[in-house]
């Protein structure tokens, strides 16, 4: 599947893993793909996001907030749901971390696996949603009759997936996913048109 990825798109996949490492998170999620898209400021996806008013530092702090220490394993929605039945998740986390150290309730890092095609792309680290986004990127490229998969297709995949932390974070930052999608498609069309 990765043969058709442009150099920039491949770099995004690699960068997504680095973003997860940076946040000390074992899984590569849609939010890391989003941060990776913004990392390469020259890419079509980054240009569209920037034009739509997205700031990488703002987005990064939002992602860190949503996935910060203590809430890495269970997110805000879990905490709210537990509150509904009278369980204070923060108190539980605090008690466990007191005994077993910070991050004790976090998901453990995945067991290392050997991949026959080398270790450049460690698919096992990508969350099901992040994998879905890459699949959707491929589908978006096919739909647009593009032979390559670029950063813009990954962004379209993120927007189409719609439920990952990337989409949630964008929405929380006040962006409209439908409008963003339209912006990407406009940019793709403009980029395809020969310079007037």
């Amino acid at each position: 599947m990765f043969e058709r990825f442009t150099r920039r798109a491949r770099a995004v996949v690699v960068q997504a893993r680095d973003e997860a490492d940076r946040l000390h998170q074992p899984r590569v999620g849609t939010e890391h793909l989003l941060l990776a898209l913004l990392h390469d400021g020259q890419s079509l996806a980054a240009t569209v996001l920037r034009d739509a008013g997205v700031r990488i530092d703002d987005l990064r702090s939002r992602v860190e907030q949503a996935t910060g220490p203590g809430s890495r394993a269970l997110d805000d929605a879990d905490a709210a749901a537990l509150r509904e039945i009278g369980i204070d998740l923060a108190a539980v986390v605090a008690r466990v971390e007191e005994s077993f150290g910070p991050g004790a309730l976090d998901d453990p890092p995945p067991a290392p696996r050997r991949w026959p095609w080398g270790r450049r792309y460690d698919g096992s680290r990508f969350s099901p949603r992040a994998k879905k986004v890459l699949e959707l990127a491929l589908r978006e490229a096919v739909r647009l009759r593009h032979n390559h998969i670029g950063t813009e297709h990954i962004l379209l995949g993120l927007l189409r997936e719609g439920n990952g932390l990337a989409a949630v974070t964008l929405t929380r930052a006040g962006l409209d996913l439908v409008d963003l999608r339209r912006r990407v498609l406009d940019a793709v069309r403009t980029a395809a048109r020969p310079a007037a």
Partner: peptide, 17 residues
């Protein structure tokens, strides 16, 4: 059901610890 899901997630992690 959302509460059940959250509880299960918490349970899984507590069990692991």
């Amino acid at each position: 059901l959302r509460a059940v899901l959250a509880l299960r997630r918490l349970l899984d992690r507590l069990e692991r610890v």
